[in-house]
Amino acid sequence: MEEFWSHGYGGTSPAQLAAATGVAKGSLYNAFTSKRELFNRCLDLYHQQIAEVAQQLLDHPGSTRECLRNALKSVVDSDLAQPQRRGCLIGNTAVELAGEDAEVAQKLRRMQEESTGWFAARIQGGQRDGDVSRDRDPRALAEHLANTLAGLRVMAMTHEAPALYRIIDTALSVL
Rank of each mutant, 00 (worst) to 15 (best):
A105M: 08
E143A: 07
Q48W: 14
Q112F: 06
I168G: 01
A98E: 09
A105Q: 09
C67V: 15
Y165P: 00
M111C: 04
R136G: 01
D135M: 06
A24M: 09
R65W: 03
Q112W: 04
P83G: 00
Q55G: 03
P14N: 14
A140L: 15
A140K: 15
A150Q: 03
Y46A: 07
L17C: 08
S173E: 11
G126L: 00
S27Y: 09
S27I: 07
S173L: 07
A94R: 13
L57V: 01
R86A: 06
R134A: 14
A20C: 05
S13A: 05
R134C: 11
L152E: 07
V75H: 10
L89W: 04
C42R: 01
E114T: 15
A121D: 08
R41G: 01
A31S: 09
D169T: 01
D101P: 03
T33N: 11
D131R: 04
M111Q: 04
S78D: 15
N92P: 08
A31V: 00
N40H: 15
A121C: 06
R136E: 06
K107E: 08
L58G: 05
R65M: 00
H144I: 12
E160W: 13
Q106E: 14
Q82G: 02
L152M: 11
E100P: 05
E114S: 13
A120Y: 05
A18L: 11
A51M: 04
Q55K: 12
S133W: 08
A54Y: 13
V23A: 10
L141G: 04
D129W: 02
T116L: 06
V95Y: 02
A20M: 04
A31R: 09
L72Q: 02
M155R: 08
R136C: 08
Y165C: 01
F39T: 03
S63R: 01
N92C: 12
R166K: 13
D77A: 08
L145N: 02
Q106S: 14
T116G: 10
Q16A: 15
R153G: 00
F4W: 13
Q106I: 06
R41L: 05
A120K: 11
L152T: 10
S27V: 10
G22A: 12
D137T: 06
E96I: 07
P138V: 13
T64E: 00
K25M: 13
L58D: 06
Q48D: 15
H159P: 01
R134N: 10
S115M: 11
S27N: 15
L164S: 11
E113D: 12
S74A: 15
R69F: 13
Q49V: 14
E160V: 14
G126W: 03
L172T: 09
E100I: 14
